[in-house]
Amino acid sequence: MSEASVVQVKTTPEDLLNLPEEKRRAAIEQKEMPIVLAHEVHKWYGNFHVLRGINMEVFKGEVIVIFGPSGSGKSTFIRTINRLEEYQKGKIIVDGIELSRDVRNIEKIRMETGMVFQQFNLFPHLTVMQNITLAPIHVRKWPKAKAEEVALQLLARVGIPDQADKYPGQLSGGQQQRVAIARALAMQPKIMLFDEPTSALDPEMIKEVLDVMIELAESGMTMLVVTHEMGFARAVADRMYFFDQGQIVESGTPEEIFTNPKEDRTKLFLSQILH
């Protein structure tokens, strides 16, 4: 592990977990304490060391862009935050709750984090409306009428108010991804995770999805976005993290990263994707 490359964070897990519940909530709310804290996270696939000591703190309302070459562990990392992937060493604390093997903690955290996938992963046997209202009705226990009302508002927000009764297979890729965003938002999460949300889209559909994401960022949502859309990063990111070989090589504001990258690997990668 090269020492210089490991990004240090100020908060330790103990700082956060030792606070009493109410103070912790207030501190997260006041942006004194991070809403997502990753501390020395390691993960192995068999003998392959995928995540090699990731440290990251994200405060409420921040938009974080994670980028890097394929196989650098960026998707794996974002998927550890809602425990779609396990990790073997380190700590992740989301909204003051420590991710552990305890199923109840995992379900609590999943209720507070929405996720948007590269492949949309809409449920093909359910209509758009059913896709969006399923989790609010069965997890949040909302009455159906309330869930449907919220769903219609969200569909209007992502710009497809008239597709509620269609099935995902009848929509274009861009529309499907916007439904997926609405589905995640319907649970009213505090944090949104985006795992390469535009990589599977045809070029002319990328903008409609990015526009929705920009609007969401401007509304104050905490977002972690794995993407290579540098225009999006420049427009709304608070900080950017460059991942390579399971480590965070460099982090900084978009300004710092684009105009004055410090590490050679960052420079090389940026020169390859910004033609």
Binding site: L84, R110, G114, F117, N121, F123, L134, V139, A184, M187
Partner: peptide, 14 residues
Amino acid sequence: PKGQHEAAWALGLS
């Protein structure tokens, strides 16, 4: 596909 499981879990479904 595995994505169907993941999407459901990510929404908090048991």
